[in-house]
Amino acid sequence: MLVSERMKRAVFLGPDETLATAARKLRKDNIGCLPVCEDGRLLGMITDRDIAMRGVADSRDPNHMRVREAMSINAICCAKDDAVEHAAALMHQCHVQRLAVVDADHNLVGVISMRDLEEGSSERRPFEVIFYKEILDHVGLTHHSELMRLSVAHGTKAEAVEAAISQFEAAKQVTKWTAAADGYDVVSIHVGESGESLESLELTSERDAQIRPRARALWEEAGFPSGQDVQFWEKAAQGVDGENKAER
């Protein structure tokens, strides 16, 4: 899916409008930033923080100070023909909730937000799938070493995992992802009530899902002993890994 299919009409400001006008537009649309354009071309972005730090904090009169004096020149933007996965990854990387969308001539054609990517259903939202190898530290404890992190901007969790596995296998040139990784975790990304980006880590790798019930069964068979979690997990992991290797 392309950004052009999810973006919204852009509300924007001219560089010679006042900070007071900018503040009123931000409040009216209940957003934290607005593109600044001149003759359709994107010049920058102004945020509520810009108004507070470069205007109010410096005791400037917001009825006379111009937007061009407070705006950020290097606006974070994406192209209308970019994939929505790219837009989601860019927002996450830059810790922003909205991007200006431009055409090939850098003219503003719309805006896209994390909320736009989540529209339709609470079950359809951006995810990150993190593939890892298991390594042992100096005391013998197992840790996850990240191999690749893939962003999937829209879909259910199952669809996101399926898409990420396909991309991972292609990137690693393997026919089955388990030939290159020990497992994967899933980060679910959604927008909170105040517009903040929230993340929740779901330890849902296929390998862990196979090991966990087997380790519990071993623990129950042994009479529920305490302090032996690692031993039962490792024994269960050996069984699962042996079966997976036999299937390759």
Rank of each mutant, 00 (worst) to 15 (best):
A163N: 03
T156N: 00
M45F: 03
D208N: 10
D103Q: 13
S113A: 09
Q167E: 15
R207A: 02
T178K: 05
N244Y: 02
F127R: 14
G242V: 00
P35D: 01
E162Q: 14
D241G: 01
A171H: 13
H64W: 04
R6D: 07
D208F: 06
C33R: 03
D39E: 13
I31D: 03
V152E: 12
V240G: 02
K133D: 15
E146Q: 15
L42Y: 01
R125K: 15
G242Y: 00
Y132T: 07
M1T: 10
K245Y: 01
G40N: 04
T204V: 14
H143T: 02
I31Y: 04
A79H: 05
L43S: 07
S166L: 13
K8N: 04
V101G: 06
R124S: 14
Y184S: 04
A153Y: 05
M91D: 01
M53I: 13
G192Q: 05
D185E: 14
H106W: 05
A57N: 05
D82K: 03
A100S: 15
E119C: 07
D50Q: 12
E146T: 15
L150A: 10
V187G: 01
L218H: 03
C94S: 13
V174I: 14
G140I: 05
A237T: 12
A215M: 05
F131E: 06
H106Y: 06
I31E: 07
S59E: 03
Q228L: 08
G183R: 01
K133E: 11
A222F: 08
R125V: 13
D61L: 09
G140W: 07
V186W: 05
R49Y: 09
E146G: 08
E162N: 10
H190F: 15
R212Y: 08
H138K: 10
Q228T: 06
A171I: 01
A153W: 05
M65D: 07
N74F: 13
G120S: 09
L117S: 03
R207E: 04
T175C: 08
R212I: 07
H106S: 06
D16E: 14
E247L: 15
L136E: 14
T47D: 01
